[in-house]
């Protein structure tokens, strides 16, 4: 299978359901179990299980440009790299090898553009952004963006979104996810107007 075909299979296209053949063969319960193990591993701050430290540095660096740390936390603080680690050891395990090839291909263009640098994490932030801009339409980047978002905003049981950082970032309350009206500004305003009308 070509890299392009593989990445098409691996990574999300549009808004549809993502590929997950390995996941389905393994079964969802197994997937959940692995994810829970990932969460435990994260809490213990153990070493990565399925990626090398060098790979982790690259993942952290790329993810940090997709959702950077600003005055609010980003992919680094959310622990997105732990999501990658566990995904590549479980439901994306059968694509781990080709994914490494794609990472290598991604890295191979760096030295030519930025003398003295060999890998992405060698670059300063401005050069990192410049390089990512040059590859942002590639399946590798699109897939990496998807996984970074999944690692920041997916449930913490999958290894990322630690302490619900992703949910807090966008202003989502919870869990336990159970609400009563009013929910937002406009329905609160509407309810107040109705109440006033009924009282008159």
């Amino acid at each position: 299978m070509s890299n392009e075909a593989l990445t098409r299979r691996l990574f999300l296209q549009g808004t549809g359901t993502l590929a997950g053949s390995t996941l389905m063969r393994a079964g969802i319960p197994a997937f959940i179990a692995v994810s829970q193990a990932a969460c435990s591993a994260k809490e213990e701050a153990t070493a990565f299980e399925n990626i090398t430290n060098a790979e982790a540095r690259e993942i952290i660096a790329i993810a940090a440009r997709i959702l950077p740390t600003t005055d609010t936390p980003g992919a680094t603080e959310a622990g997105a790299v732990y999501f990658f680690d566990k995904a590549l050891g479980s439901f994306l395990a059968d694509t781990a090898g080709p994914a490494r090839d794609m990472l290598a291909a991604f890295q191979s263009g760096i030295a030519g553009q930025f003398p003295g640098a060999e890998v992405f994490s060698d670059l300063g932030e401005a050069d990192q952004d410049k390089y990512l801009k040059s590859v942002e339409e590639t399946p590798f980047f699109q897939g990496f963006r998807f996984l970074t978002i999944a690692g920041v905003f997916g449930m913490a049981m999958h290894g990322g979104n630690r302490d619900d950082i992703g949910w807090k970032l966008v202003g989502m309350d919870g869990p336990p996810h159970a609400w009563v009206a009013p929910y937002g500004y406009y329905d609160a305003e509407y309810a107040a107007a109705q109440e006033q009308q009924n009282g008159e």
Binding site: T17, L18, L23, P175
Partner: peptide, 20 residues
């Protein structure tokens, strides 16, 4: 569950993607 990853992204309730 409320798990976006398994339900919305990996099609848990629809038995997965078109590979299946």
């Amino acid at each position: 569950t409320h798990d976006e990853i398994s339900v919305l992204m990996f099609g848990e309730l629809s038995s997965g993607n078109n590979d299946v």
